[in-house]
Design a protein around this nucleic acid. Structure first.
Lengths: 140, 140
DNA sequence: GTTGGTGCAAAGGATTTGCAAGGTG
DNA sequence: CACCTTGCAAATCCTTTGCACCAAC
């Protein structure tokens, strides 16, 4: 379940794709993020370690890695954010007042998904979009 | 509950703001949309009826009307969309495969909200972000 | 050596801002 | 006639694309 560099390289190689230092740096940055991170943030960080890496390379790489299945993007108030696919079970709960970011557990997400499915046959992916609202502190 | 032009004008006037023809046209366009509509789409449509209206006016007006409480925006896959506040109870279910757009009823939304609240004290606004997934046809 | 990848520069598209002119109350 | 609003143009931001050069396997 845990995607390693070796697995990733195999995956890319089997598709005739290459593992370049830029890709290594980008993947490493997303992995290190332990959560979600925006394309521009990735670009900034990667360029910190490895000056000269172009933003277009970052975008192209993110798109590629998403199509390969290693990464996935989701939407929060400020825009798109990427995370490793392994961590896709996180449902973001963002407080619109204080900005605090909480998460739903996988079980809770499943429960919600079940409810939606029962009434509409719709299989929801609650991880793709964040959920806004007010956290317990701000709602009080 | 139903926001009329008269109400809107009162609201604006009470804040020392003005009801200009541009604002009238923009509000009218969003109202007519009977659902959600993007800023660029509004700009295009308004400019159809009333050539010369600048996109910046559209953006400024949408922001203003949202702060006044008449409109609200939400996020779908393609970006931000505005709708009248009265229609904020729609939870979007968008199929990522066929693009079909369904909705959750108010009761269902409340049920989900209740579940989230019980476990986190988090008061979710499920209308702000769409929910993606697979519709019954595409999930089969 | 092939073929895919990268950097660079330019193009796009959406949204914001400064400012002087214009319109509303 | 104040003061809010608008149009215009320019400036940002973020993201995409074309293309020649470079590098991975």
């Amino acid at each position: 379940m845990e995607a390693s560099y070796a697995d990733l390289m195999d995956e890319l190689r089997s598709r005739g794709l290459r593992m370049t230092p830029q890709r290594r740096a980008i993947v490493s940055e997303v992995m290190r993020a332990k959560g979600h991170i925006s394309p521009t943030a990735i670009a900034r960080k990667v360029q910190g370690d490895m000056p000269g890496v172009n933003a277009s390379t970052v975008y192209r790489t993110l798109t590629l890695l998403e199509s390969v299945g290693v990464l996935q993007h989701s939407h929060v108030e400020t825009g798109a954010e990427y995370h490793r696919t392994d961590e896709a079970h996180h449902v973001h709960l963002t407080c619109r007042n204080c900005g605090q970011d909480d998460e739903l557990s996988l079980e809770e997400a499943r429960k919600l998904q079940g409810l939606i499915r029962r009434h509409h046959g719709f299989v929801a992916d609650l991880t793709h979009f964040a959920i806004t609202g007010l956290c317990s502190d701000c709602a009080a």
